[in-house]
Design a binder for these strands. Structure first.
Lengths: 196, 196
DNA sequence: CGTGCCGTTGAGCGTTGTCAACCAGTGTGG
DNA sequence: CCACACTGGTTGACAACGCTCAACGGCACG
């Protein structure tokens, strides 16, 4: 995840990273990090040396373009999150996040048609959605009571994906996933390599 | 501005563009726009043809890097806005926006040390901050009463910039402006051209 | 068998939203 | 020159959403 800490001790989570995502392309270009990065579950991290990066961005325009593409998708996601926080009540907001994670995890082969591992605590959800943890708890119960989700142990299941989309006002176009094959492993295209 | 419209008629504004900013680098890379762009005041727009763009991104790595840099700064701004909406009450949120605009407008020579033209309506502010227009009105009055801002006609003045920063919890580091000269015209560096 | 994390619940309060009305300024057409 | 409509800002009353504080229970871990 990406996050920022505030003077008053508050934390705002601004992004979730799934396998295949880049976590700090910023540093190479901007020279400085303006936020923190943390792991919410076991992670495997690949390093690209500064020299390699410099080499790629000066000599390999197609790859540079693919990396740029990845940051633009991140940007699109941030915009959608902004809409989420600004214009939707907490329950729809949470439902929207669940929809997004389903699609993104499917694209890397980490979700079935209707469910995925969900290791987040309610406090972390609260720091993501900009609401209190108590309120997250109540909204979760409501979503469960309405049959929109089930959350047992660490697994989130969405019985009727279409209905949750409807409820959350979710439209995955902002993720810029290329739609083809339905086999749940679309990683190459998500990373934009295929087009370049 | 960048914005999205929702099915219920709501609008969320996700970014303000000041002179020198790029408005749709996305299209060339992502191939599709996922949000709308609108003008809030008279604008002058420069077009770059697709062919020129293709040429730049394949043959001019330094310029490509500068463009990429610009999108990364936009991304940083989006993250800060997310923090703003998630973790700050409406009054501080508005103050934070005023602080950001002061710095950004100064960097393109459109603001004095303490004031700038502010053409937004309260309804537009509301759509930016994710609150109702009535509430914007009341928070504005409060900021005025506290002597943090004055807003006469279309001009916003910040009598004590340091105090407003304090109140809003504003730290301009996320804008990645290079600090040098204090003359309020720092456009070249803001666009990242100087470094490349 | 303690300790700590996480989830859950209740009560009361504060911020913010909704609805509705009103006012000032501006432009328009008769 | 004067209705008229329209936009943008302002105000009041009330409801609703979400927060804070506080306590408690289950569970894993040492």
């Amino acid at each position: 995840m990406r996050y920022k800490l505030l003077p008053d001790g508050g934390r705002q989570i601004m992004a979730y990273l799934v396998p295949g995502d880049f976590c700090d392309l910023h540093v190479s270009i901007l020279g400085e990090m303006d936020h923190g990065i943390g792991a919410l579950s076991a992670c495997e991290v690949a390093y690209i040396s500064r020299r390699t990066f410099e080499d790629l961005t000066t000599n390999r325009p197609a790859i540079t373009r693919a990396l740029w593409w990845a940051t633009l998708v991140d940007e699109g996601t941030l915009r959608e999150w902004l809409v989420n926080m600004g214009r939707r009540p907490a329950d729809q907001q949470m439902a929207h996040l669940f929809c997004e994670l389903l699609v993104r995890l499917q694209s890397v082969g980490l979700a079935t048609q209707t469910s995925y591992e969900f290791p987040l605590t309610q406090a972390e959800l609260a720091d993501t959605l900009g609401v209190s943890d108590v309120h997250v708890n109540r909204m979760l119960q409501q979503l469960r009571a309405d049959g929109l989700i089930t959350l047992q142990g660490k697994r989130l299941t969405i019985p009727d994906v279409e209905r949750l989309h409807e409820f959350a006002g979710f439209d995955p176009n902002y993720l810029h996933l290329t739609k083809r094959r339905g086999n749940g492993n679309d990683r190459a295209s998500r990373n934009g390599m295929a087009q370049s």
